[in-house]
């Protein structure tokens, strides 16, 4: 009975990985780059752009959350130890960049140079501050040591 459960769990994890994670993992890398490109467009044109990054981030959050909350899907992270740190760092990075574009868009809702300047500065400060906080967080709680085969790697590093 237990082995059947395990086999079904493994199959479910494989299906989830192939159906969701195969596009989600590259998107986690691409969306922040696309968002940075959108920021350039906003500053160049002087007009706000639709911020699809926020909705993509929400979607990523849902799928990553499900993969981590459902025990069967968590097997993916044990088999691919790099995936948990990658997902953790890239999702937080995507959130930071999406919020930055929200701030910039808000600033560019009105065609005023002084307003543009103020909200661009706010955006830059937000990115720097959040990146510092993120670095401090990962300095205290190393992503590489909190998931996947972390324990084995930690032990091998100690010996």
């Amino acid at each position: 009975m237990r082995s059947w459960k395990s086999v079904l769990g493994t199959i479910a994890a494989w299906i989830y990985f192939l159906a969701v994670m195969t596009w989600l993992l590259p998107m986690l890398f691409l969306v922040p780059i696309m968002t940075l490109s959108d920021m350039g467009t906003v500053m160049e044109s002087g007009f706000a752009v639709p911020n699809t990054g926020v909705f993509l981030t929400a979607l990523f959050g849902l799928f990553i959350g499900l993969s981590l909350m459902i025990p069967a899907f968590r097997k993916m992270y044990d088999k691919l130890p790099w995936m948990f740190p990658y997902v953790k760092i890239m999702l937080i990075n995507t959130i930071i960049v999406s919020v930055a574009l929200l701030i910039l868009n808000f600033g560019y809702e009105v065609q005023s140079d002084s307003r543009h300047m103020v909200w661009t500065i706010v955006m830059v400060v937000q990115i720097i501050l959040c990146r510092i906080l993120m670095s401090l967080y990962f300095h205290r709680k190393r992503a590489a040591l909190t998931g996947g085969m972390a324990n084995e790697r930690t032990l091998s590093a100690r010996s």
Binding site: V54, F55, T57, A58, L59, F60, G61, L62, I64, G65, L66, S67, L68, M69, R74, Y77, F84, V87, K88, L91, I95, T146, G147
Partner: peptide, 16 residues
Amino acid sequence: SYKRFGAFSIAAFFIV
């Protein structure tokens, strides 16, 4: 760690 970050991710989805 998985559960904590999973809860954080789903919370981000619901907030948006």
